[in-house]
Amino acid sequence: MSSDTNPIRDAIAEAIRDNKTILFMKGTPDAPACGFSARTVGALQALDAPFAAVDILPDPRIRQELSALSNWPTIPQLFVDGELVGGADIVTEMFETGELAQALGVEQPDDVEPEAQTAPAAPAPLGIENRLS
């Protein structure tokens, strides 16, 4: 393998490029493995926004390469149209102000709060779960 080739970083960049909305998280949307990931999933689900998700837990290199690519140290990381939106705090704030719905091109429902999922006992296997319709 040459120093110019990084298959994990290339796969992450391709996933970001190929999915309008993609969330890199701990766990899966159905079984988030931390409160921050659960809160971010809850905001996306409250907006009924389609998104792809990648569990970063099975391989520590995913988190390392993602953070190197995005220059953002924490997980989760939400990307929309190839651009980093931010982590749980930013996504939650954007949800509350209606900016997240606008960024995703969906309607902001009235009186909706993001629902936090409960954390599972064990992380799910690595993979991209495509939740796009």
Score class of each variant (00 low, 15 high):
Met1Ser: 08
Met1Pro: 09
Asp4Val: 13
Thr5Asn: 14
Thr5Gly: 02
Asn6His: 13
Asn6Gly: 08
Ile8Glu: 05
Ile8Tyr: 07
Ile8Asn: 09
Asp10Gly: 02
Ala11Cys: 06
Glu14Trp: 12
Ile16Gly: 10
Asp18Met: 13
Leu23Glu: 03
Phe24His: 00
Met25Phe: 01
Met25Gly: 01
Lys26His: 12
Lys26Leu: 10
Gly27Asp: 13
Gly27Gln: 12
Gly27Lys: 11
Asp30Gln: 13
Ala31Ile: 03
Pro32Asp: 03
Pro32Cys: 09
Pro32Ala: 10
Ala33Cys: 08
Cys34Glu: 11
Phe36Ala: 15
Phe36Ile: 15
Ser37Pro: 06
Ala38His: 04
Ala38Lys: 05
Arg39Ile: 04
Val41Met: 08
Gly42Arg: 05
Gly42Ser: 06
Gln45Ala: 10
Gln45Lys: 14
Ala46Asn: 01
Leu47Arg: 00
Leu47Cys: 00
Ala49Met: 04
Pro50Arg: 00
Phe51Glu: 02
Phe51Thr: 01
Phe51Asn: 02
Phe51Asp: 05
Asp55Arg: 05
Asp55Phe: 00
Asp55Leu: 06
Pro60Arg: 03
Arg61Val: 14
Arg61Ile: 11
Ile62Lys: 02
Arg63Met: 15
Arg63Asp: 14
Arg63Gly: 15
Gln64Tyr: 02
Leu66Ser: 10
Ser67Asp: 05
Ser67Phe: 04
Ala68Asp: 14
Leu69Phe: 15
Ser70Gln: 10
Asn71Glu: 15
Trp72His: 15
Thr74Glu: 03
Pro76Thr: 04
Gln77Thr: 07
Leu78Gly: 06
Leu78Arg: 09
Glu83Thr: 15
Glu83Leu: 13
Gly87Asn: 11
Asp89Glu: 12
Ile90Cys: 03
Ile90Lys: 07
Val91Leu: 00
Thr92Ile: 14
Phe95Asp: 00
Phe95Gly: 00
Phe95Ala: 00
Phe95Cys: 00
Thr97Gly: 02
Thr97Pro: 06
Gly98His: 08
Leu100Thr: 11
Leu100Ser: 13
Ala101Leu: 07
Ala101Asn: 11
Ala101Cys: 10
Gly105Pro: 10
Gly105Glu: 15
Glu107Gln: 14
Glu107Leu: 07
Gln108Ile: 09
Pro109Met: 07
Pro109His: 09
Asp110Gln: 12
Asp111Gly: 11
Asp111Trp: 05
Val112Asp: 04
Pro114Met: 10
Glu115Ala: 14
Ala116Thr: 04
Ala119Asp: 10
Ala119Tyr: 06
Pro120Ile: 09
Ala122Tyr: 09
Ala124Met: 04
Ala124Ser: 07
Pro125Cys: 11
Leu126Ser: 14
Gly127Val: 12
Glu129Thr: 11
Arg131Lys: 08
Arg131Ala: 09
